[in-house]
């Protein structure tokens, strides 16, 4: 056999000539990239499908069952009576209270977070940027419970806030706030004001980071272009920077809004002991053993978030993404 005749086969071996199971598998993956994608996606798909969506579905199903008031036994028949129960006055109050608190907390977080995020994205460089990340992230590294209890002490009648207000002769501000009906109370830590303050403190990093990320993506030359076309700094802010930061604000508000909707620890520790949705669910599935109503309560935040996202989409908040 001449060399020239043999060379094509020795230089370019066909697939069939390769040996070993590993090579065979890698050849198969190369030939069928979709199969490779499927293999790689299977574990996360199973996780999301069974553990996540599956349990959610089970929860949804529970909300269509009902509790027999006399025996305390769950009747496994599809009915809307649990939802009818959800719409009773006392439960509606819980829902309205929670949604209002979530909305106010979200707006406050956005207002406080925006300047911080703006500074970090546009001005902080080098070590000031590192300091910013540290300041925003560090509270997340310590225990949530510790922070909430710390706030209970800070806001207590004998706490540092009351003490400081007395020293500065501004106790009347706090007294005035606490005298306001509904949001007031015997002390900051036993009022909606206290609950609100702690919520804002705990969730604000989840608002700052997405806004900062959105602002980082606004190139300097958009701002220059806007100035070039005659816009003052204020006009540039409202017509260019703010619209481009909006997806970040929406993303942050999804975090703060849904986290407040579902939280049951903060209102239990700091506040006036009126129930929020999370506490209602906790009580219903625990001591009351009313799983169907607890499940129906859980559907409320999901429905609210669904409507919220749909509205944000309609307003074009995600167009730039």
């Amino acid at each position: 056999m001449s060399l020239s005749a043999a060379s094509p086969q020795t230089i370019v071996p066909s697939v069939g000539q390769r040996s070993g199971i590993v090579e065979a598998i890698s050849d198969l993956f190369f030939a069928r990239p979709k199969f490779l994608t499927l293999v790689l996606l299977l574990p996360p798909l199973l996780w999301i499908g069974i553990v996540y969506v599956g349990s959610l579905f089970a929860l949804l199903l529970q909300s269509f069952y009902s509790l027999d008031d006399f025996s305390g036994v769950i009747i496994h028949e599809v009915t809307l009576s649990t939802y009818a129960q959800l719409l009773e006055d006392a439960n509606i109050q819980i829902i309205v209270r929670t949604v209002l608190m979530s909305a106010v907390v979200t707006v406050a977080c956005a207002i406080i977070a925006f300047p911080i995020a703006y500074y970090a994205a546009r001005y902080a460089r080098g070590w000031t940027k590192a300091l910013f990340y540290l300041a925003v992230m560090m509270p997340l590294w310590s225990s949530y419970l510790v922070k909430v209890y710390a706030w209970k002490l800070i806001l207590a009648k004998e706490g540092i806030v009351t003490w400081l207000a007395a020293k500065l002769h501004v106790s009347w501000v706090i007294d005035g706030l606490l005298a306001v009906p509904i949001i007031g109370g015997p002390s900051l830590s036993f009022s909606y004001i206290g609950t609100f303050l702690v919520f804002v403190y705990i969730w604000i990093p989840y608002m700052i980071l997405p806004i900062q990320a959105a602002l980082e993506r606004v190139p300097t030359n958009y701002i220059e272009a806007s100035a070039d076309l005659g816009a003052s700094s204020r006009q540039t802010f409202w017509t260019v920077i703010f619209p481009l930061a909006l997806p970040g604000i929406i993303a942050g508000s999804i975090f703060t809004f849904s986290l407040t909707l579902g939280d049951y620890i903060i209102p239990q520790i700091v506040g006036n002991s009126r129930l929020f949705i999370g506490q209602a669910v906790y009580t219903l599935q625990g001591t009351a053993g009313n799983i169907p109503l607890a499940a129906a309560f859980t559907v409320v935040p999901m429905a609210i978030m669904g409507v919220y996202l749909w509205m944000a989409k309609r307003m074009g908040a995600f167009d730039v993404l």
């Binding site: 030359n221 220059e224 272009a225 619209p243 481009l244 730039v320």
Partner: peptide
């Protein structure tokens, strides 16, 4: 502008 800087929104 060199990369045009058109507003994406």
């Amino acid at each position: 502008f060199q990369d045009y800087a058109l507003f994406p929104h």
